[in-house]
């Protein structure tokens, strides 16, 4: 092992120590936010509601988190992974940003230079996002009365349909074969069993599982 490799190995070990420490601390801070807000307002989280909600969310998002970790960590490197997973917007921003920087720098996978560019890129991207949003939020504060006005209420009450309409189109045109059966089945359930309409969080699990099974089947047949 030459001096450069030895230095880089020690550097990565120090990033692992720093990354673990800061991620543990960051997670504690993030988890403490709802509790602090609750303390200030003299309310506490509903334990049963939390467990019920977490079971539904975890069933969907823990596998997604594991897949994202396994796929993205090698692309991001050590420092880039620690930063990306705590700063978020991984797929839509960090990955394209890192790939762009590595392309410009002309580094190749496996080189220490590649990982260093990745960490610099993720750190810069996160700092810029934070600054842009800070400026935006400062500008939004005076607009607060407008944002909370009665006239805009239908807009905010329909933010979820707006998201899934847009997202649905994006994903459905990506793979229409995969979308047909879950969409028809979920529509039939909601039309013939109207009680399920307000239980979409329950429907998400069979719908997601069905799409996964169909996806696997189509993938194996080479039709995806």
């Amino acid at each position: 092992m030459n001096d450069k490799d030895k230095f880089f190995r020690e550097f990565n070990d120090s990033l692992h120590r720093l990354g673990r420490f800061t991620l543990i601390l960051g997670s504690i801070f993030l988890i403490s936010v709802p509790f602090l807000v609750g303390m200030i307002n003299e309310v506490s989280p509903d334990g049963a509601g939390f467990i019920k909600g977490f079971m539904r969310v975890g069933t969907i998002y823990i596998p997604v988190a594991i897949v994202e970790f396994l796929v993205y960590a090698p692309m991001l490197g050590v420092g880039g992974s620690y930063l990306s997973f705590i700063t978020g917007n991984v797929t839509n921003m960090k990955i394209p940003c890192v790939m762009n920087s590595q392309d410009i720098a002309g580094t190749s996978p496996g080189q220490p230079e590649h990982e260093i560019i990745s960490t610099i890129s993720v750190a810069t991207s996160s700092i810029v996002t934070t600054l842009v949003i800070v400026v935006g939020v400062i500008l939004m504060v005076p607009l607060q009365p407008v944002l909370s006005s009665e006239v805009l209420l239908p807009a905010f009450d329909n933010v979820v349909p707006a998201l899934f309409g847009a997202l649905g189109l994006k994903y459905f045109i990506k793979s229409p074969k995969l979308a047909v059966i879950p969409l028809v089945l979920m529509t039939a359930i909601c039309v013939f069993m109207p009680g399920m309409i307000n239980q979409t969080s329950v429907l998400l699990l069979p719908s997601g599982a069905l799409a996964l099974i169909l996806g696997y089947f189509l993938f194996k047949k080479g039709k995806l």
Binding site: P161, F164, G168, L178, I189, T200, S207, Y216
Partner: peptide, 18 residues
Amino acid sequence: TTAMFIGLCAAYIGSYIG
């Protein structure tokens, strides 16, 4: 992940049609 998101979108769109 794409398959999972298609499933999520199908459940929500189905509920809006319902």
